[in-house]
């Protein structure tokens, strides 16, 4: 092959692939709005807050960012909004173990940011992030869940709390909670957490009385 032929291959080949890329880009741009909810003024304001505090300097969103702190794409699906709001304004008041600094995010900024994160959680991301294979299998292989464990699962408690190493770290570890509190405390706390723990960021457990009892039975087995 002559040098001139090699050069032409480079130039025209690159142009060829770039034209295909432009075509795909055009097609994609036409499809994006259908794959995400409509963007309101508040969602856009939340995106501006995201940029203002350089959130991507620590977190990732759609998996892109800095890998220093959790991905926030689907965070509003797992964490109660009241918790997120308090956390954003003063992380350590909501979770004493938080390493996120207090950035001075105002109440309305927190609401906007949560609206924005609610939007990202509803974007069709081709199934990312995937459901963890082992946790999705549910419970321990072959073993029936108790009534209390079912309530624990259906309310998504493990998004914030850990039992035996599985679960979130935003709320206290419950592995030995039955040794720390009695029935009356647990029942009362489920109904109104803030009355028992100052500044608690946990939402009230909205469930029938029987479910609260089952959940309490389960907690008392954790010793």
């Amino acid at each position: 092959m002559s040098n001139k032929a090699a050069r032409n291959l480079f130039i025209f080949g690159s142009l060829f692939f770039f034209v295909i890329f432009l075509g795909l880009t055009y097609d994609t741009m036409g499809k994006l709005d259908g794959r995400a909810p409509e963007i309101t003024e508040q969602i856009n304001a939340g995106k501006m807050v995201w940029h203002k505090y350089d959130c991507i300097g620590c977190h990732t969103i759609f998996g892109n960012g800095s890998y220093f702190a959790p991905d926030l794409t689907k965070t509003t699906l797992n964490k109660p909004k009241s918790y997120l709001r308090q956390f954003l304004m003063d992380p350590k008041s909501a979770n004493p173990n938080a390493s996120m600094p207090k950035l001075g995010i105002r109440a309305e900024e927190a609401d906007d940011l949560i609206a924005f994160l609610d939007w990202t959680s509803k974007v069709d991301t081709n199934g990312w992030p995937p459901k963890p294979i082992l946790a999705a299998a549910g419970g321990v292989a072959g073993k029936e869940l108790t009534e209390g464990q079912k309530v624990y699962q259906s309310h998504g408690c493990s998004a914030c709390h850990t039992i035996n190493g599985i679960g979130g770290t935003t709320g206290p570890d419950l592995t030995r909670v039955g040794a720390k509190h009695d029935r009356a405390w647990l029942v009362g706390h489920f109904k109104d957490p803030a009355a028992f723990v100052k500044n608690s960021a946990m939402p009230k457990v909205e469930a029938p009385e029987t479910d609260i009892e089952k959940l309490t039975d389960y907690m008392l087995t954790l010793k």
Binding site: M1, S2, N3, A6, R7, L9, F10, G13, S14, F17, F18, I20, F21, L24, D27, T28, K31, L32, R35, A36, F62, G63, N64, V123, D124, T125, N126, W128, P129
Partner: peptide, 29 residues
Amino acid sequence: EKWMYIEVGFVMFTGILGTGHHYYWIGTP
């Protein structure tokens, strides 16, 4: 120079559409 053209040519042939590996999970088709 001949090898340079072949190298940078293949960089572009694979790299331009290779951008697609960033479009798996961000809400794109």
